[in-house]
């Protein structure tokens, strides 16, 4: 792609466009899923067909809202926090291969980079909580710190168990390794089918990723029922909207990472059928959306964990299991390869 700066710019913000459109869609989908799982209908009026324009209407409303900064807040940090939050999750998209023809940057330490840059998110949440000068915000921010630090460990360990198999940190290469339809003759060559331990690894990764993206049942930083809104309490208008956007971008990011690491990324599930750069983008986003849907599904299934239960789950179950799993996968690799 050797062309003018404009083309480069347009290409470089492809993930942003995807995120923005996806966020509008995902928030609507979340409402519909929530509604139907509770035997309701969700939004039905705005835009005509099943309230498809509801999120757009909400967005327009949010843009018009007054931008309120509390009198005793730290103005600079307060105003910066949402942008850093979104920058952190958007920055991570650069290392994700959206299709065989598109990746933001072919960095060789792609996974490592993603893990590193997403921890900026917790920094921004602590910023928001601290700068708001509000005890609920601060409580939420402190929970975030504890949660992120704890759950980084199982996430990284499960990612590491995939890296043992692939031998590379570059996500494009990880995806390319999974192409073809070799396993058992019909199953695609995805890593999740590589060994039985990989299935457990995926579950562990998914749980840890849920906690990382602060989704229910791990939404303690926000927990609107006990902490008002956690770190979001004092935010209004588009700044709050940016936090919301970050949350959904984060969901998509972790789903895409999960899809790349375990489900073959942009590879078609039918071998060379429906393959190619554009189909690749389709499969990648479809896999990501399925995982996002599962996250929503879990949200309306499970109640929120208590702080001690959260820590208990992480340190007593996820971390030992993921380490044992890592060792077992390493042995499997040694024996069968």
């Amino acid at each position: 792609m050797s062309s003018g700066p404009l083309v480069v710019f347009v290409f470089s913000i492809i993930p942003l466009k995807i995120i923005l459109v996806y966020a509008l869609f995902a928030i609507w989908l979340e409402r519909k899923v929530a509604g139907h799982m509770q035997d309701r209908l969700g939004p039905m009026e705005t835009g005509g067909w099943h309230g498809w324009a509801q999120t757009i209407a909400d967005l327009l409303k949010m843009i018009q809202k007054e931008d309120i900064v509390p009198a005793k807040a730290d103005r600079f940090l307060f105003k910066m926090a949402p942008f850093i939050a979104f920058a952190a999750s958007y920055g991570a998209f650069v290392a994700i291969p959206l299709s065989s023809g598109y990746i933001g940057s072919m960095i060789d330490v792609g996974v490592f980079y993603i893990v590193a840059i997403t921890s900026l998110l917790s920094v921004s949440i602590i910023m928001a909580g601290w700068a708001s000068n509000n005890k609920w915000s601060l409580l939420g921010a402190m929970r975030t710190a504890a949660q992120t630090v704890s759950y980084e460990v199982p996430t990284v360990v499960t990612i590491l168990s995939v890296i043992i198999v692939t031998g590379t940190l570059n996500l494009m290469e990880v995806t390319e390794l999974q192409s073809g339809n070799g396993f058992l003759g019909f199953l695609p060559n995805w890593i999740i089918f590589h060994s039985p331990f990989m299935i457990l690894a995926f579950f562990l990764f998914f749980i840890a990723a849920l906690a990382e993206s602060h989704r229910v049942p791990f939404d303690l930083p926000e927990s609107e029922s006990e902490l008002v809104g956690g770190y979001q309490t004092e935010y209004s208008g588009m700044r709050w909207g940016l936090f919301m956007l970050t949350e959904y971008a984060d969901m998509l990011l972790l789903s895409l990472v999960g899809a790349t690491l375990f489900f073959g990324g942009w590879n078609s599930p039918f071998g060379s059928f429906m393959d190619g750069p554009l189909w690749g983008a389709f499969w990648m986003l479809l896999k990501g959306m399925v995982l996002v849907f599962v996250m929503m599904w879990l949200r309306w299934t499970l109640p929120r964990l208590r702080v001690d239960q959260l820590m208990n789950l992480c340190w007593k179950y996820l971390i030992p299991l993921s380490f044992v799993n890592l060792v077992l996968i390493a042995f499997w690799e040694m024996i069968f390869k």
Binding site: M37, R40, W297, L298, T301
Partner: peptide
């Protein structure tokens, strides 16, 4: 968790009471 998810999955397709 899978039991719970099964229940919510069923409700996803039951007729809404709205």
């Amino acid at each position: 968790i899978f039991t719970g998810m099964g229940i919510t999955w069923r409700h996803l397709f039951t007729k809404s009471v709205t």
